[in-house]
Design a protein around this nucleic acid. Structure first.
Lengths: 205, 205, 205, 205
DNA sequence: CATGAATGAGACTTCATTCAT
DNA sequence: TATGAATGAAGTCTCATTCAT
């Protein structure tokens, strides 16, 4: 599915165990918060003892790092494809929102963690890269919105920065309640969100 | 409710100091997260030693409780006034959004804490009241939206539950970046948000 | 006795507690080795719980650092006084050996720790200063020996470097068996050691 | 004694590999200290995984035991030969010192480990034999020195116990800096050490 | 009111050891 | 013989909390 899948010969090289454990950890981090999650809780959820996790990972922090990095890598693959497609501003926003909901669908836990923890994680040297990602992110969205205002497809009477935050938050907080396989596909949710964001919820418009 | 509990000391109350300390604590909780905040950090920010805080408060948890309860009490005063005013659905939504941004302005730290921590706090007996509040909250917003759809002032082609989450998230996440006194008054932000939520960001529509 | 004694007013400022605890820790480190010494053992010896030590010290390593640094600081005070006195090579060696036994008398535990642990501690960034000290040390002794050979007071038919190691080790390993108050004063031991080192143990010479 | 214990496996002995691994282990123990040496470090140095060592040895402790026992066995072979030769006190001392440097040359790592760890190892039941060895050792040296004083070949004005420690330490600490093949042969070092110990480093005397 | 010192529970982590393959 | 994965005990350290002064 993703770019990191490897062959599965005889005598399993088992990078899948890592991935399994990271998925488990991400789930617990998302549910309880990184700090409130003890290594023991992760181990319990994985059916092993706390110390055993250290055979696979250096530290609790490195698990978090790997979870977030994996997510961000995939996110940027998707975003970069969209941004390179040469679409108009409205179509770009539509594609970015759709891609975002797909990522939420794939990495729900990672996104939820990112939402809750990224702000104060950025203070730690190890997580400086989150700030870089954030800047690229802002540049992509804000630039597209500004292009849209210039092209006359987005309203010019609004504070663009406020609009940017509005759209950004609106999309990503969805990770806090979204459950994959729950009636709405990511594309369906994206379509409805886009409809609200672009045209509003009021009748007439 | 629990916000008015007194300490089991013999000496005088000292209400000012208490509020100062809670404001300090709320600021630190919001910046670093409740779990990552040590009592010592709060004490540092308040210019005292960790142990000294226990003259004023029973526990770290009781500080959190008092911070959130104070905020929710004021929030509901405002909401209840709006809901009792007998406005139409659109005007109700407008008034609730405006009131919400006023609360964010007044209790930024508390709102940010609430956003980040309420989900898992609800699991603790002491914070069950957060779930009650959440249910009342949902009832107020969802009910108003449904009334608006029935009245034909809000679009009927959208999933109303999704719309509820959209409006709710859209408003409250603002607490994560809002800084009082930063160019936009709460009323101005409310107006722009409402404009986006109701009419969309696209030209024409 | 040493340069760090402070006044003992009312409401003790208690830097003595630190010193007491460090003395206790040094004793245990010396007896069991740094790595084999658990923080709990130190705390037991001090009559408190393991965690309580962290009110006074940042870490087990910082205790070790402070123990060694205090010793080395005092050692160099003594050595520098000797080296600045403008004595002849033989008198300098005599004074250095005597001063060394005085330091062993005062800082037996620290010296024993230094002997056992300094070599591999130097690999840790925090303990790089031990290597500096070692170089100064070598310079002082080796230089004096070479001066003595040039002046004709020390034998020229020996490898000076070997002689340096011989004298150095000979003096400092004494810390591994020396017990203060055990019959011999440091000056008495110094005199006998010097007699052996300078004139040999064989009759005639 | 315990050095010849076999593993409880069914397969072949493999004596070479065993010795190689012990040499590797001894090197690491000497460099980092027994406690600070993890089984994983030994395995790394041997090019295998930590668990694999347990095919060859029962435990980390048994490796240490075998290293020290092998050394002590050989040491006593040499010492016993010297002591049985019926030499005079001075010649006995000379022969013991020379033999000691030969052992340091052959078992540098083991000697270094012995120096650093024997004191507190003696507390463990498994290593009580070190105390026996130490007592025999003291008897051999101290006895020879006393015989020499009685015969008038060693000075009688020195504390004989102090002299014993002086000679003993003087020889064995050399293991902490000696590197085989480094310019001086063990016999050459022995000759210089003996010259210093017997006749002193001062000219004339 | 506040400090200084301590407690005790529990967190993260390390490591010798085991064992199926 | 060796590997990969896990165990379980123990170690260092953190932190909310208490309490005499």
């Amino acid at each position: 599915m993703s770019a990191t899948k490897k062959k599965n010969q005889v005598t399993a090289p088992a990078p899948e165990r890592r991935r399994e454990l990271l998925d488990t950890a991400a789930e617990v981090f998302a549910a309880q918060g990184y700090n409130a999650t003890t290594v023991r809780k992760i181990a319990d959820a994985a059916g092993m003892l706390a110390g055993s996790l250290y055979y696979h990972f250096d530290s609790k922090e490195s698990m978090l790092d790997e979870i977030l990095s994996t997510f961000l890598t995939e996110l940027w693959e998707g975003y970069d494809a969209v941004l390179a497609a040469g679409l108009g501003p409205r179509e770009t926003i539509e594609a970015l929102v759709t891609e975002s909901f797909r990522e939420i669908d794939r990495h729900r836990a990672a996104v939820a963690i990112y939402q809750k923890e990224s702000r104060h994680l950025m203070d730690l040297p190890r997580f400086h890269h989150l700030a870089d990602s954030q800047r690229r992110f802002e540049k992509a969205w804000l630039g597209t919105l500004e292009r849209g205002v210039a092209d006359g497809v987005f309203r010019g009477d609004l504070d663009v920065r406020l609009t940017y935050r509005f759209v950004r938050d609106t999309v990503w907080v969805a990770a806090s309640w979204y459950r994959p396989g729950g009636g709405h596909s990511p594309e369906e949710i994206a379509r409805q969100y886009l409809s609200m964001v672009l045209d509003g919820i009021a009748v007439d418009g």
